[in-house]
Amino acid sequence: MEFDLPRAAGIVALIIALGTAGVAVGTPMGIGTTLMMVLPSMLVFGAVAFAVGMKHGEFRATRA
C-alpha cells in the first residue's frame, strides 16, 4: 500500500483523536483538562514522531 502525505497525516490524526477520546471517556479526568493538557501533548508528540518517521523512511529508501 502506497502512503502519500495526506493519507499518512490523516491516519496520525485518527490515532490522536481515538487516543484523546479514550482518555476522555476512560479516566475520571475532566474534559477541560483532557483538551487543555492531553490533546496538545499528543499533537506535539504525534508531529515529532511523524517527522522523524518520514525522515527515517526517506533515509531507508535511498539506502537500497
Rank of each mutant, 00 (worst) to 15 (best):
2 E>T: 07
3 F>T: 02
3 F>W: 13
3 F>L: 13
3 F>R: 01
4 D>C: 05
5 L>W: 12
5 L>C: 04
6 P>K: 01
6 P>D: 00
6 P>F: 01
6 P>E: 02
7 R>V: 06
8 A>T: 04
10 G>F: 05
12 V>A: 11
13 A>Y: 01
13 A>P: 01
14 L>Q: 11
15 I>F: 08
16 I>D: 08
16 I>R: 04
17 A>K: 03
18 L>D: 07
18 L>S: 14
19 G>T: 00
20 T>H: 03
20 T>W: 05
21 A>Y: 13
22 G>S: 12
22 G>K: 11
23 V>H: 09
24 A>M: 14
26 G>Y: 11
27 T>N: 06
28 P>Q: 02
29 M>T: 13
29 M>Q: 12
29 M>C: 06
29 M>P: 09
30 G>D: 08
30 G>M: 04
30 G>V: 04
30 G>S: 14
30 G>H: 04
31 I>V: 13
31 I>N: 00
32 G>M: 05
33 T>I: 02
33 T>R: 07
34 T>K: 01
34 T>L: 03
35 L>N: 02
35 L>W: 10
36 M>R: 10
37 M>R: 14
38 V>G: 08
39 L>A: 13
39 L>H: 06
39 L>D: 08
40 P>N: 00
41 S>C: 08
42 M>C: 08
43 L>W: 02
44 V>E: 06
44 V>L: 15
45 F>Y: 14
45 F>M: 15
46 G>R: 01
47 A>C: 04
47 A>G: 13
49 A>H: 06
50 F>S: 06
50 F>T: 03
50 F>E: 14
51 A>S: 14
53 G>T: 04
54 M>G: 11
54 M>N: 10
54 M>K: 12
54 M>L: 15
57 G>T: 02
58 E>W: 12
58 E>C: 09
58 E>F: 12
59 F>A: 05
59 F>H: 14
59 F>C: 01
61 A>C: 07
62 T>C: 04
62 T>L: 11
62 T>E: 15
63 R>P: 01
64 A>D: 13
